[in-house]
Simulated scan of single mutants.
Amino acid sequence: MPPRSPYDNLVHPRTVRKPVPQVEAEKDLVVEDPSSGFVGAVVRCEKDVVHLEDRFGKVRGYPLGPGFWVDGRPVVLVRPKQAAPSGPLRSASGSLYVDNARARVARAGRIYVEGKHDAELVEKVWGHDLRIEGVVVEPLHGVDDLPAIVKEFRPTRGRRLGVLVDHLVKGSKESRIAEQITGEHSLVVGHPFIDIWQAVKPQVVGIKAWPVVPKGQPWKEGVCAALGWEDDTGYVWAQRILARVKSFTDLEPALLGRVEELIDFVTTD
Protein backbone atom coordinates (compact mmCIF):
# COMPACT_ATOMS: atom_id res chain seq x y z
CA MET A 1 0.00 0.00 0.00
CA PRO A 2 1.46 3.36 -0.97
CA PRO A 3 2.14 5.78 1.88
CA ARG A 4 -0.63 8.29 2.68
CA SER A 5 0.01 11.86 1.75
CA PRO A 6 -0.16 14.44 4.57
CA TYR A 7 -2.60 16.36 2.34
CA ASP A 8 -5.14 13.52 2.03
CA ASN A 9 -7.39 14.81 4.84
CA LEU A 10 -7.38 18.44 3.80
CA VAL A 11 -10.69 19.92 2.62
CA HIS A 12 -10.91 22.83 0.25
CA PRO A 13 -12.33 25.91 2.09
CA ARG A 14 -15.06 26.33 -0.51
CA THR A 15 -16.47 22.88 0.30
CA VAL A 16 -16.89 23.65 4.02
CA ARG A 17 -20.46 24.68 4.83
CA LYS A 18 -20.45 27.63 7.18
CA PRO A 19 -23.05 27.65 9.94
CA VAL A 20 -26.00 29.96 9.29
CA PRO A 21 -25.90 32.80 11.84
CA GLN A 22 -28.71 33.35 14.30
CA VAL A 23 -30.30 36.80 14.32
CA GLU A 24 -32.70 38.07 16.95
CA ALA A 25 -36.04 39.16 15.50
CA GLU A 26 -35.86 42.67 16.93
CA LYS A 27 -38.59 45.18 16.09
CA ASP A 28 -38.04 47.01 12.75
CA LEU A 29 -35.48 44.46 11.50
CA VAL A 30 -36.01 44.08 7.73
CA VAL A 31 -36.38 40.41 6.78
CA GLU A 32 -37.01 38.58 3.50
CA ASP A 33 -38.78 35.28 3.00
CA PRO A 34 -37.00 34.08 -0.18
CA SER A 35 -39.56 31.34 -0.86
CA SER A 36 -42.32 33.92 -1.43
CA GLY A 37 -40.33 37.10 -2.02
CA PHE A 38 -42.14 38.83 0.86
CA VAL A 39 -40.03 41.54 2.49
CA GLY A 40 -41.10 43.26 5.68
CA ALA A 41 -40.04 44.75 8.97
CA VAL A 42 -40.55 42.89 12.23
CA VAL A 43 -43.55 44.39 14.02
CA ARG A 44 -43.83 41.87 16.83
CA CYS A 45 -42.46 38.53 17.92
CA GLU A 46 -44.59 36.02 19.79
CA LYS A 47 -43.56 32.70 21.32
CA ASP A 48 -42.76 30.88 18.07
CA VAL A 49 -43.99 33.32 15.42
CA VAL A 50 -42.54 36.50 13.93
CA HIS A 51 -44.85 39.02 12.23
CA LEU A 52 -43.53 41.02 9.29
CA GLU A 53 -45.14 44.10 7.73
CA ASP A 54 -44.30 45.18 4.19
CA ARG A 55 -44.30 48.75 2.87
CA PHE A 56 -47.95 48.45 1.87
CA GLY A 57 -49.04 47.64 5.43
CA LYS A 58 -49.64 43.93 4.80
CA VAL A 59 -48.70 41.72 7.76
CA ARG A 60 -47.69 38.06 7.57
CA GLY A 61 -46.73 35.64 10.32
CA TYR A 62 -43.91 33.10 9.97
CA PRO A 63 -42.52 30.41 12.29
CA LEU A 64 -39.22 31.43 13.84
CA GLY A 65 -36.22 29.48 12.60
CA PRO A 66 -34.25 29.06 9.37
CA GLY A 67 -35.29 30.08 5.88
CA PHE A 68 -34.97 33.88 6.10
CA TRP A 69 -32.59 36.41 4.61
CA VAL A 70 -31.27 39.58 6.21
CA ASP A 71 -29.13 41.93 4.13
CA GLY A 72 -29.10 39.35 1.34
CA ARG A 73 -27.72 36.52 3.48
CA PRO A 74 -29.44 33.47 5.01
CA VAL A 75 -30.12 33.64 8.73
CA VAL A 76 -31.95 31.77 11.44
CA LEU A 77 -34.45 34.07 13.16
CA VAL A 78 -34.69 33.58 16.91
CA ARG A 79 -36.76 35.20 19.62
CA PRO A 80 -35.12 38.34 21.07
CA LYS A 81 -33.56 37.95 24.48
CA GLN A 82 -35.26 39.73 27.33
CA ALA A 83 -32.98 42.32 28.86
CA ALA A 84 -32.59 42.05 32.60
CA PRO A 85 -34.33 44.94 34.37
CA SER A 86 -31.86 47.56 35.61
CA GLY A 87 -34.20 49.11 38.17
CA PRO A 88 -37.62 48.76 39.76
CA LEU A 89 -40.18 47.00 37.60
CA ARG A 90 -42.70 49.33 36.00
CA SER A 91 -46.21 48.65 34.80
CA ALA A 92 -47.41 49.63 31.34
CA SER A 93 -48.60 52.95 32.77
CA GLY A 94 -45.16 53.72 34.20
CA SER A 95 -46.16 53.12 37.82
CA LEU A 96 -44.20 50.83 40.12
CA TYR A 97 -45.18 47.23 39.44
CA VAL A 98 -46.45 45.41 42.52
CA ASP A 99 -45.46 41.77 42.06
CA ASN A 100 -47.96 39.07 43.09
CA ALA A 101 -50.41 41.70 44.28
CA ARG A 102 -53.99 40.55 44.74
CA ALA A 103 -56.67 42.63 43.07
CA ARG A 104 -58.50 44.86 45.50
CA VAL A 105 -62.24 44.38 45.96
CA ALA A 106 -63.95 46.70 43.48
CA ARG A 107 -64.80 50.15 44.76
CA ALA A 108 -68.32 51.51 44.49
CA GLY A 109 -66.98 54.29 42.28
CA ARG A 110 -66.57 53.81 38.55
CA ILE A 111 -64.85 55.19 35.48
CA TYR A 112 -67.03 55.35 32.39
CA VAL A 113 -65.54 55.61 28.90
CA GLU A 114 -67.31 56.08 25.59
CA GLY A 115 -66.87 52.68 24.00
CA LYS A 116 -65.37 49.21 23.95
CA HIS A 117 -62.13 50.31 22.31
CA ASP A 118 -61.63 53.03 24.93
CA ALA A 119 -62.11 50.49 27.72
CA GLU A 120 -59.68 48.02 26.14
CA LEU A 121 -56.97 50.65 25.74
CA VAL A 122 -57.34 51.87 29.32
CA GLU A 123 -57.21 48.28 30.55
CA LYS A 124 -54.09 47.47 28.54
CA VAL A 125 -52.08 50.44 29.80
CA TRP A 126 -53.57 51.06 33.26
CA GLY A 127 -54.88 47.58 34.07
CA HIS A 128 -52.32 46.92 36.80
CA ASP A 129 -53.11 50.22 38.52
CA LEU A 130 -56.85 49.65 38.26
CA ARG A 131 -56.66 46.23 39.90
CA ILE A 132 -54.44 47.53 42.70
CA GLU A 133 -56.88 50.38 43.35
CA GLY A 134 -60.06 48.34 42.81
CA VAL A 135 -61.36 50.57 40.02
CA VAL A 136 -63.74 49.21 37.38
CA VAL A 137 -63.88 50.77 33.90
CA GLU A 138 -67.09 50.39 31.91
CA PRO A 139 -67.99 51.43 28.34
CA LEU A 140 -70.99 53.71 27.78
CA HIS A 141 -71.38 53.16 24.02
CA GLY A 142 -71.88 56.89 23.54
CA VAL A 143 -72.47 59.92 25.74
CA ASP A 144 -75.74 61.29 24.35
CA ASP A 145 -77.58 60.15 27.50
CA LEU A 146 -74.78 61.01 29.92
CA PRO A 147 -76.83 63.32 32.21
CA ALA A 148 -79.41 60.57 32.76
CA ILE A 149 -76.68 57.97 33.30
CA VAL A 150 -74.97 60.09 35.94
CA LYS A 151 -78.28 60.78 37.66
CA GLU A 152 -79.05 57.06 37.77
CA PHE A 153 -75.58 56.29 39.17
CA ARG A 154 -76.13 58.75 42.06
CA PRO A 155 -72.50 59.70 42.84
CA THR A 156 -71.66 60.31 46.48
CA ARG A 157 -68.53 60.79 48.55
CA GLY A 158 -67.75 57.07 48.69
CA ARG A 159 -69.16 56.39 45.24
CA ARG A 160 -67.47 58.79 42.85
CA LEU A 161 -67.96 58.73 39.11
CA GLY A 162 -65.40 59.72 36.51
CA VAL A 163 -66.17 59.92 32.80
CA LEU A 164 -63.73 60.02 29.87
CA VAL A 165 -65.21 61.65 26.76
CA ASP A 166 -63.89 61.64 23.19
CA HIS A 167 -63.53 64.90 21.25
CA LEU A 168 -64.08 67.16 24.25
CA VAL A 169 -63.27 70.47 22.56
CA LYS A 170 -64.92 73.87 22.77
CA GLY A 171 -68.16 74.05 20.82
CA SER A 172 -68.49 70.30 20.25
CA LYS A 173 -71.60 68.27 21.03
CA GLU A 174 -69.60 66.43 23.67
CA SER A 175 -68.64 69.66 25.43
CA ARG A 176 -72.27 70.77 25.62
CA ILE A 177 -73.25 67.44 27.17
CA ALA A 178 -70.35 67.53 29.64
CA GLU A 179 -71.37 71.00 30.82
CA GLN A 180 -74.63 69.53 32.12
CA ILE A 181 -72.79 67.33 34.63
CA THR A 182 -72.34 69.12 37.94
CA GLY A 183 -71.64 68.05 41.49
CA GLU A 184 -68.45 67.51 43.47
CA HIS A 185 -68.63 63.72 43.23
CA SER A 186 -68.73 63.58 39.42
CA LEU A 187 -65.92 64.48 37.06
CA VAL A 188 -66.08 64.60 33.27
CA VAL A 189 -62.80 65.02 31.40
CA GLY A 190 -61.88 64.38 27.81
CA HIS A 191 -59.29 64.36 25.10
CA PRO A 192 -59.36 66.29 21.80
CA PHE A 193 -59.31 63.27 19.50
CA ILE A 194 -62.29 62.35 17.34
CA ASP A 195 -61.83 58.72 18.32
CA ILE A 196 -59.66 56.84 20.80
CA TRP A 197 -57.68 55.41 17.85
CA GLN A 198 -56.08 58.84 17.42
CA ALA A 199 -54.76 58.73 20.98
CA VAL A 200 -52.26 56.11 19.80
CA LYS A 201 -49.20 57.79 18.31
CA PRO A 202 -49.16 57.37 14.50
CA GLN A 203 -45.63 55.97 14.38
CA VAL A 204 -46.68 53.15 16.72
CA VAL A 205 -48.98 51.79 14.00
CA GLY A 206 -46.54 52.52 11.18
CA ILE A 207 -48.05 55.68 9.69
CA LYS A 208 -46.89 59.31 9.53
CA ALA A 209 -50.21 60.77 10.67
CA TRP A 210 -53.83 59.81 11.14
CA PRO A 211 -55.79 60.61 7.96
CA VAL A 212 -58.24 63.48 7.82
CA VAL A 213 -61.67 61.97 7.18
CA PRO A 214 -64.23 64.14 5.35
CA LYS A 215 -67.06 65.40 7.53
CA GLY A 216 -70.13 63.18 7.37
CA GLN A 217 -68.14 60.01 6.68
CA PRO A 218 -67.80 57.40 9.47
CA TRP A 219 -64.39 58.12 10.95
CA LYS A 220 -63.08 54.59 11.54
CA GLU A 221 -64.21 53.37 8.13
CA GLY A 222 -62.70 56.47 6.52
CA VAL A 223 -59.36 55.84 8.21
CA CYS A 224 -59.29 52.22 7.04
CA ALA A 225 -60.11 53.24 3.47
CA ALA A 226 -57.49 56.00 3.41
CA LEU A 227 -54.75 53.71 4.72
CA GLY A 228 -55.73 50.67 2.66
CA TRP A 229 -56.46 48.67 5.79
CA GLU A 230 -59.07 45.96 6.19
CA ASP A 231 -62.68 47.19 6.37
CA ASP A 232 -63.31 45.23 9.57
CA THR A 233 -62.76 47.95 12.17
CA GLY A 234 -62.79 45.44 15.02
CA TYR A 235 -59.94 43.51 13.42
CA VAL A 236 -58.02 46.70 12.61
CA TRP A 237 -58.32 47.91 16.19
CA ALA A 238 -57.26 44.59 17.72
CA GLN A 239 -54.46 43.66 15.32
CA ARG A 240 -53.13 46.88 13.82
CA ILE A 241 -53.54 49.27 16.73
CA LEU A 242 -54.10 47.79 20.19
CA ALA A 243 -51.65 44.91 19.65
CA ARG A 244 -48.85 47.43 19.06
CA VAL A 245 -49.47 49.45 22.19
CA LYS A 246 -47.02 48.28 24.84
CA SER A 247 -46.95 51.13 27.35
CA PHE A 248 -47.94 54.71 28.07
CA THR A 249 -45.12 55.92 25.81
CA ASP A 250 -47.16 54.75 22.81
CA LEU A 251 -50.02 57.13 23.67
CA GLU A 252 -50.51 60.86 23.23
CA PRO A 253 -49.99 63.01 26.35
CA ALA A 254 -53.46 64.52 25.93
CA LEU A 255 -54.95 61.15 26.90
CA LEU A 256 -52.44 60.15 29.58
CA GLY A 257 -53.15 63.05 31.90
CA ARG A 258 -56.91 62.65 31.67
CA VAL A 259 -56.90 58.97 32.61
CA GLU A 260 -54.54 59.57 35.53
CA GLU A 261 -56.81 62.40 36.68
CA LEU A 262 -59.86 60.11 36.67
CA ILE A 263 -58.10 57.34 38.59
CA ASP A 264 -57.01 59.83 41.24
CA PHE A 265 -60.52 61.26 41.43
CA VAL A 266 -62.42 58.01 41.95
CA THR A 267 -59.87 56.68 44.47
CA THR A 268 -60.09 59.75 46.69
CA ASP A 269 -62.31 58.96 49.66
Rank of each mutant, 00 (worst) to 15 (best):
M1P: 09
P3C: 10
D8T: 12
R14F: 12
R14C: 09
K18W: 10
V20I: 15
E26K: 14
K27M: 11
D28F: 10
G40S: 05
R44G: 07
R44N: 08
C45W: 00
E46V: 08
L52E: 03
F56G: 13
G57Y: 02
K58I: 12
L64G: 06
W69H: 15
V70Y: 01
K81D: 10
G94V: 03
G94N: 05
Y97A: 14
V98I: 12
A101Y: 09
A103R: 11
R104E: 11
A106Q: 11
G109F: 04
K116W: 10
H117Q: 10
H117R: 14
L121Y: 02
L121G: 02
W126P: 03
G127F: 04
R131M: 12
L140Q: 02
L146T: 01
K151F: 09
F153D: 01
F153G: 07
R154A: 13
T156A: 15
R157N: 10
R157Y: 14
G158D: 13
R159S: 05
D166I: 02
K173H: 10
I181Y: 03
D195V: 13
W197H: 09
A199I: 07
A199C: 15
V200W: 08
K208T: 11
W210T: 07
V213G: 03
G228S: 02
E230L: 12
Y235P: 01
W237S: 01
R240T: 07
R244T: 05
K246Q: 14
T249W: 11
D250P: 04
L255I: 03
G257S: 00
V259E: 03
E260H: 11
F265K: 06
V266T: 06
